[in-house]
Nucleic acid binder design. Structure first.
Lengths: 336, 336
DNA sequence: ACCGGTTTCGCAACCGGTTGCGGTTGATAA
DNA sequence: TTATCAACCGCAACCGGTTGCGAAACCGGT
């Protein structure tokens, strides 16, 4: 009972050849109805399950999509993955998830194992430490469709799906201005990432448009909750502390809120808070936060749809890559 | 440039046979040093990468571990996955993650694809809707090691790794009692799950030991944040509302806190809160929560270590299954 | 010159399915 | 009776590696 049963077993039991069994199982017209019935019945009875590995080897196709993410912990990416899974399963594919953990080596490694496992397409969000993108060029050279999302490389020609970073930040900061805030700070992430640059750009645009000065001491950053928390602590304890703050991500938001709590500031009386923040986190705080929803679920869905379009298209490399900007939604709650 | 290069390509280029190339690449003693050098050099130059699918087919081994979880969204499971990945990668294996999304069919399906992909071992946390466990028996019959964690089936003989649910809840409730709370409520999850039963048991033990009555109206439940929130709302607005509440999980904690916030109750003056809650969520609330840390990271690590022990042992089915209880850590913060 | 032993490599089967092509059988038409 | 053709099925190669076994080539010893 320990070995799984194969086409050969069925063939021997019925005195047929492997080929006949194989064809019978997939309703090939060359096979007589009686043979088909017999084969299918015994296959059913023995719980025959085709071996994906063998099929993958023969067809050079695996019905698997590779997903490369920096991490799946806590924020944002879980939502993206939910969106991805929905589409992937609609197509009868499986998802192979690899985490880079923000390590360049593991990212390269992950791409390698995906290729070695014959994935038919790749969804990727790059590590913040990645500055050499040749492993991705490799994928493209091998004609394997790849779609980047959220954290995208600037210099690669491929499909991209991302939130409208500039617009989202611009809207958020503008909303702070409209509610009367005069000293608005921002906390950004790793400067390597395009999203950091773009979100900072949106911040500056909004301030500039309002004729306000951009002060360097109101621009802080951090890679972890703790780093953000202490950076925020410094920010809040300077001579002219900000009266509004924009958080670039769920992670930075957490650090900021912790610092505000320990500084016993009242929200929104003392300081207003808004930023990119995914459900359900924005409503875990007290008061619930006004937020720009990055809509990870939609990003995942759209990126996967784009990917399947490429997979199904012939000569996908001929089609020019597209950039999809997802417009994020701003929800106003008690923090502004 | 689009096709990946194979052992055959190298063989032809050097006028050797496939077998010689294969052996040269893995330093087989039968091959002369010069041949090895030549083969390795050209393999390097052509970026030869062995095809995992072919190897998997031949060896009936994939160097892949299958992970089945209800979902990877938001709470708890991401931490577990981090722990799992650490060990899996230490062994040079890859992780294949499947989500059941709390659906029985998708759980069965997920197990099937894992088997079809020749995973060498399975880590599983069952869906709350699962009541028939024959798909797991299947795995065991095929001699594929499987380790359950957190949400484990009661009637299957296999290794289990779980937090000490009874003890954790007992400790938490006892702590509420020690800080003077008299009317302690609990919010549990789906009654199908052993963890719900056990955690409820710990709650009753603590109350019983203190000579206190167990009131049904203080035992609420919910499957989603919204359900928990409205159940908590009812709980808090009855004639004799509780002055302490225990949350069975991060998810229920979120619903409880939302309800407490909207009811404008003060923590811990009006009501004390404690429960199973993973970092960093327990510190996102205001005040930061006293919590029993389920230690997902450790669970993942230990479950995976147990699994690899099984994989490496011969006749793993001979060894009697073990149950590993992880003692959770209680951290007291501002909410009690 | 012959024998035994080592070194080095190739043949072919195998893992589990898939598929082009060719063969056998029986019925039908000429 | 024989040529024709469809219906049905098997042979064998293939995907990309792995491996048992045998063989050729070369060695030194006698």
């Amino acid at each position: 009972m320990s070995q799984s049963i194969t086409i050969k077993d069925i063939a021997q039991l019925l005195g047929l050849s492997k080929s006949t069994v194989s064809r019978a199982l997939k309703d090939h017209p060359d096979i007589s109805p009686e043979t088909k019935r017999a084969v299918k019945e015994i296959a059913e009875r023995l719980h025959y399950k085709p071996n994906h590995v063998a099929i993958s080897l023969r067809h050079r196709k695996s019905r698997m999509i590779g997903l490369l993410v920096p991490n799946i912990s806590y924020f944002f990416f879980p939502s993206v993955i939910e969106g991805i899974e929905e589409i992937v399963h609609q197509h009868g594919y499986q998802l192979m998830i690899l985490q880079s953990n923000e390590s360049y080596d593991r990212e390269v490694n992950g791409i390698d194992t995906m290729l070695a496992n014959n994935v038919e397409g790749i969804l990727a969000s790059v590590s913040r430490r990645t500055e050499d993108f040749s492993h991705f060029k490799n994928v493209i050279d091998r004609d394997i469709p790849i779609v980047f999302f959220d954290r995208v490389p600037e210099e690669i020609k491929a499909d991209m799906v991302l939130v409208d970073d500039i617009r989202g930040t611009y809207d958020g900061v503008k909303h702070l201005l409209e509610t009367g805030r005069k000293r608005i700070a921002i906390c950004i992430g790793h400067p390597n990432l395009l999203i950091s640059k773009n979100r900072l750009k949106g911040y500056k645009m909004a301030l500039h448009e309002a004729g306000m000065e951009i002060k360097d001491e109101y621009i802080i950053s951090g890679q972890s909750i703790d780093e953000v928390e202490s950076a925020t602590h410094q920010l809040l304890n300077q001579d002219t502390p900000p009266d509004g703050i924009f958080a670039i991500s769920d992670l930075t938001m957490t650090g900021i809120m912790k610092s505000i709590y320990t500084n016993r500031l009242r929200i929104p009386e003392d300081i207003a808070v808004i930023g990119f923040c995914e459900e359900p986190f924005s409503t875990m705080y007290n008061p619930p936060l006004s937020a720009i929803q990055p809509m990870g679920f939609e990003i995942g869905k759209i990126a996967t749809e784009v990917l399947f379009n490429r997979i199904q298209a012939e000569h996908s490399f001929m089609v020019t890559p597209e950039i999809h900007n997802i417009t994020s939604r701003m929800v106003i709650r008690g923090s502004t």
